[in-house]
Amino acid sequence: MQFKYYICLPNPLQICFALCLIFPPNHMFNTDDLARMWIALGFIQPSHIQGETIKNIGGRYFDIVVKKIFF
């Protein structure tokens, strides 16, 4: 069931979620730490939206992944 949601994610979100698979089951993710990892690895690109930071995008990506029931 979750695979269906994964393939519907945009490519940048698929890449971000794939990184999470290196952690053990039941790992407690910290939104800011995970977003920083995604940024450091170049998974999140700057936005063209005025005033939106890369950190905001990372938080938004995390929220989307959580809403899709991956965590």
Rank of each mutant, 00 (worst) to 15 (best):
M1W: 11
M1P: 13
Q2F: 13
Q2H: 09
Q2Y: 09
F3D: 09
F3S: 11
K4R: 14
K4H: 12
Y5I: 13
Y6S: 08
C8H: 15
L9M: 06
P10S: 01
N11Q: 14
N11G: 12
P12K: 01
I15Q: 11
C16R: 02
C20N: 09
I22N: 10
F23H: 07
F23G: 05
P24M: 04
P24I: 04
N26S: 05
H27N: 07
M28K: 15
F29C: 09
T31D: 13
T31E: 13
D32R: 09
D32Y: 08
D33V: 06
D33W: 09
D33C: 11
A35C: 06
A35L: 02
R36Q: 10
M37G: 05
M37L: 15
A40M: 07
F43A: 07
F43W: 00
I44S: 04
P46T: 01
H48Q: 10
H48K: 12
I49K: 05
Q50R: 08
G51W: 08
E52L: 03
T53F: 02
I57R: 03
Y61R: 05
Y61D: 07
F62W: 12
F62S: 10
D63Q: 15
I64D: 10
I64T: 14
V66P: 08
V66F: 07
K67P: 09
K68A: 15
K68H: 14
F70L: 02
F71R: 13
